[in-house]
C-alpha cells in the first residue's frame, strides 16, 4: 500500500509535459525511422519496383543475391576490406598523433586546429575530385615518387591499389578522432602517472596500464561510429573510381545505389540494405559484447 502510494507520487504533473517536448522526435522516430526500417525489411521479401506494387516473393532476393549475383560477393569483400583498412587505420593514426601531441607544446591549439582541417571534408565531392587528380597516373604524387627515384604507381588503374588509395583519403581525415582522443588524454589524472612512476613503472608500461584503459570509452565510441560509417561508404568510390577498375572499389553502398536508384529495383535494393544492416549489427554486437572486457567506465552513466 505504502509502495503503491510512493509509485503514484513518482511523477509530478509537470513531468508529463515532457511528452510535449518529445513530440517532434516521437513523430519523427515513428514515421521516418521505425516505419522505413520495418518497410525495408518487408520490401526485401518482395519484387517491388518503383512503378510496380510489391509482390511477396519470399527469400528470392536473398537467394539471388547470395547464389546468382556475381557482383555481390565481390562487393561484400570490397566493403569488408575497406572497413578493415580505414577504421583501424584512422583510429591508430588519430591515437598515435594524439598521444604524441599530449604534452606541453607551445602552440598546441594552432596545431590541433590545422590538423583538424582535412576532417572538415568528410564525404565532400570537391575533395574526392582533388584526390582523383592527385593520384592520377601522371599526377603530382607520381611525379614526387619519380623525383626521389621511385617508379610511378597506378593508383587508380590497379585493382589492388585503387581501394587502398580511397582508404587513404579516409585515413587522411583522422583529425576529428584525434581531437576526441586529445580531450580524453587530458582528462587522465596526473596523479596516476606520478604514483606509477614512484612505483617504478616505465613509460611504455604506464601507457598501456594507465593511458589506454582511461581512454577506452572514446576508442569504443569511435570504433562503433566509424564502423557504421565505413560499411555504408559511397561517395568516394562513386565519384573517384565509379566502382572500378574491374569493380575493385564497388562497395555495397554503390551496389545498393545502383540497384535501387538506377534500376529502381527497390525490393532487391532493400535486400542489399539489410545485408549492410546485418553486417553493421554483427560487428557492433561483437564490439559491445567484448566491451565489458576492455572498456573501462568511471561512472555507471545513470541520470
Amino acid at each position: 500500500m505504502v509502495n503503491k502510494k510512493a509509485k503514484i507520487r513518482k511523477y509530478k504533473k509537470r513531468d508529463y509535459q515532457a511528452f510535449l517536448y518529445l513530440l517532434p522526435w516521437l513523430v519523427g522516430f515513428a514515421v521516418l525511422q521505425l516505419y522505413p526500417f520495418i518497410t525495408s525489411l518487408y520490401y526485401s521479401f518482395t519484387d517491388y519496383k518503383i512503378s510496380v506494387a510489391p509482390n511477396f516473393i519470399g527469400l528470392k532476393n536473398y537467394t539471388k543475391l547470395f547464389t546468382q549475383d556475381p557482383e555481390f560477393w565481390n562487393s561484400l569483400k570490397v566493403t569488408l576490406l575497406y572497413t578493415l583498412y580505414t577504421v583501424p587505420g584512422k583510429l591508430l593514426m588519430a591515437l598515435a598523433v594524439a598521444v604524441f601531441l599530449n604534452r606541453d607544446i607551445k602552440g598546441i591549439n594552432l596545431i590541433r586546429t590545422l590538423y583538424y582541417i582535412p576532417s572538415l571534408f568528410g564525404g565532400s565531392v570537391a575533395i574526392a575530385i582533388l584526390w582523383k587528380i592527385l593520384f592520377v597516373d601522371n599526377g603530382v604524387i607520381n611525379a614526387m615518387l619519380n623525383t626521389v627515384g621511385l617508379p610511378s604507381l597506378q593508383w587508380w588503374g590497379s585493382t589492388k591499389l585503387a581501394l587502398r588509395t580511397i582508404c587513404m583519403l579516409e585515413i587522411w581525415q583522422f583529425g576529428s578522432s584525434m581531437v576526441m582522443f586529445l580531450a580524453a588524454l587530458k582528462n587522465v589524472q596526473k596523479e596516476l602517472y606520478e604514483a606509477a612512476s614512484i612505483d617504478g613503472a616505465g613509460k611504455i608500461r604506464m601507457f598501456f596500464k594507465i593511458t589506454i584503459p582511461h581512454i577506452t570509452p572514446i576508442i569504443f565510441f569511435n570504433l562503433i561510429m566509424q564502423t557504421i560509417q565505413a560499411f555504408q561508404n559511397f561517395t568516394s568510390a562513386f565519384v573517384i573510381t565509379k566502382g572500378g577498375p574491374l569493380k575493385s572499389t564497388y562497395v555495397l553502398g554503390m551496389k545498393l545505389y545502383t540497384e535501387a536508384f538506377s534500376y529502381f529495383k527497390m525490393g532487391y535494393g532493400s535486400a542489399i540494405s539489410w545485408v549492410i544492416f546485418t553486417l553493421i549489427m554483427t560487428v557492433t554486437l561483437i564490439l559491445f559484447r567484448s566491451s565489458s572486457a576492455w572498456v573501462y567506465y568511471e561512472d555507471s552513466g545513470d541520470f
Binding site: Y43, I228, Q232, M266, G269, W274, I276, T284
Partner: peptide, 11 residues
C-alpha cells in the same frame, strides 16, 4: 546506430 542505408529506400 541506425544506418541511413537501411531506411533510405522506404524514405
Amino acid at each position: 546506430m541506425l544506418p541511413n542505408a537501411v531506411i533510405i529506400i522506404p524514405r
